[in-house]
Design a protein around this nucleic acid. Structure first.
Lengths: 341, 341
DNA sequence: TTGAAAGCGCTAACAA
DNA sequence: TTGTTAGCGCTTTCAA
């Protein structure tokens, strides 16, 4: 089968009887090509099945590729995001490559570098573990937008987020309206710059709701260590503490489901004895058997938004854009009211 | 911040006071560099923060990148595969880029092309929707190994699979041993070349088990259309048919869980009235609330195996390798025995 | 409107 | 052991 001879721009030029630069111009829709020349070239391209070599292209022009860096493919929120990103980049003629950072700073840094080595035209960093300073440094070299990463003060890159604080506040306010007082929050623990992480903002929303209802004394935040290094026992430990809450607001569905499982294992009846709200509205939480109430962030829209921002940067915008998206509380059987006493 | 001037091999050569090719040799660990030269060059690389430009590299040598093409990020089996692939490629100094084919032939073809445009050194195609002929054509241009795609007769590319037929046979034999006779199978429908798909081989295993137990008359295969185009009602329709089975073997966990949900919705008591076994042993099926019995394929090992095969091809092997991996039946509460009458 | 030619950063013959 | 140099396939001045 045609062996190793892939058509190059030269082959096309020869076939069409024009110059190499003419072909290049047609490829890039550059100004100043006659209709007849364009037709000739396009016919040859079609005939030879020519495809420009991205690597060669990258040396002078663009790659028309944007890189997506995600922390973890198992997070059910990630595929929604990616779908949105791809939808928008497809429409703009960009393709997408995904790298998995494994929620590890060093690994993520390597991947960003590697994507820069490949001359990608821009990067979407999802839930990055890098510091805003480091991201800014990268952003001097290529356009970057961060998704699910709060850095509303950043001037060198854009951010796109759900309005985590407001979403959390509404969720907790709903629990309060259902009569709950003793409402705990389960969230993540982090050593560095917590204020960039979504869960920190969700915690602020939780605190705001509790304070707003005069429930300061019941504020109780339980912090989990990194999902990879954490044991599955945390939920049992959590439920063994004295002074049990009647409701828990959980920073993520995955951990909320672990909590539900543990609660059932020790014989708690849900939701009567424990109401739970998660975050992400993952399909798994939506299963009839689980029925987890959750905050829906509409990952698809977030992905679209992030890509539009990125394309804007690629086209030359240099001012920073920081967008917050609205969320929606989805109620299922995991929440019950309590009688006030 | 140093603005746009990224260090090139020239910068390094100048800084180290040596030639470009000397630097290149150090980079590639090529034969014939003195210890002192290597040290000088490495010092300069370190000092200048130099990183080779992948695009430039790709024009003459390799990119040290392998592409993974998956049909769907939401399939819980995929992340395990990817972890395995990454483990093996990390160890060999290769990085990995992921593309999502969306279970669409045209889209997948585009992505393969796009990965070839980027001069990737090899490709792992997961559950491909392309025909073996088309894959073979691509395989003439770059090393390819297929994962979860049966083409044991292919000579131009390798395949790595779980032993789907045997796995399915064992699962169904287990149901038979539990006293079930009326055992249905739920699988996928496909227009083209079903024999390449894993679910086809699982169906063969189901049939073999049924025939082996003299249950030919109870063989009942229910075929679902494409997951994307399918409605969620299929399970209800399935359960509404006359002559209900007492057990169902399902080609995948995701569909098995839908079946469980529908069964509970119409008031069937599980597993007493319906036993179910799925395939993939996904973490979601393993949830206490679900408790789905399932076939475990050990995706991590499959990923490792596929990558080893690919690296072998990249290093020059041209004979085809077709590997089958053993599976393991994981039993949970979704299976109950029936009294024989 | 078209084409010739320089050069992007690297690798790999080949020469020294 | 080291360096010189010719490309890889493309984009992009600059001339024609």
């Amino acid at each position: 089968m045609g062996k190793n001879t892939r058509a190059t721009i030269k082959t096309v030029a020869a076939d069409a009887g024009v110059s190499v630069s003419a072909v290049s111009k047609v490829l890039r829709n550059a100004y100043g090509v006659s209709e007849s020349l364009r037709e000739k070239v396009e016919a040859s391209i079609e005939k030879l099945g020519y495809r420009p070599n991205t690597a060669a292209r990258a040396m002078r022009g663009k790659t028309y590729t944007i890189g997506i860096l995600v922390p973890d493919l198992r997070n059910p929120f990630v595929p929604d995001l990616i779908d949105g990103i791809r939808e928008a980049s497809d429409a703009a003629g960009y393709r997408v490559m995904i790298g998995v950072g494994r929620a590890d700073r060093g690994n993520e840094r390597d991947l960003v570098n590697s994507m820069m080595d490949q001359q990608m035209d821009g990067l979407v960093l999802v839930g990055s573990h890098l510091s805003p300073e480091e991201i800014a440094k990268f952003a001097h070299q290529l356009p970057i937008v961060c998704l699910a990463f709060h850095a509303e003060g950043a001037t060198d890159f854009d951010t796109v987020n759900a309005d985590d604080a407001t979403a959390a506040q509404h969720a907790v306010e709903h629990l309060i309206a259902e009569g709950h007082r003793r409402i705990s929050m389960v969230t993540l623990d982090t050593i560095k710059s917590p204020e960039n992480h979504v869960f920190y903002h969700r915690e602020q929303g939780y605190r705001a709701a509790m304070r707003g209802a005069g429930l300061d004394e019941f504020i109780d935040v339980h912090r989990l260590s990194d999902p990879i290094r954490r044991t599955n026992d945390w939920a049992h430990d959590f439920l063994k503490r004295p002074q049990q809450p009647t409701a828990v607001f959980c920073w993520s569905d995955l951990d909320a489901i672990q909590l539900m499982t543990a609660a059932e294992q020790i014989g708690l009846s849900l939701p009567a004895e424990l109401s739970i709200i998660g975050f992400d509205n993952s399909s798994i939480g939506g299963l009839l058997q689980i029925g987890l109430s959750s905050v829906d962030q509409n990952g698809f829209e977030l992905g679209l938004g992030a890509t539009e921002a990125l394309l804007g940067r690629i086209s030359g915008r240099s001012s920073a854009l920081h967008t917050l998206f609205k969320t929606k509380l989805v109620l299922r059987k995991s929440v019950a009211g309590v009688s006030q006493d």
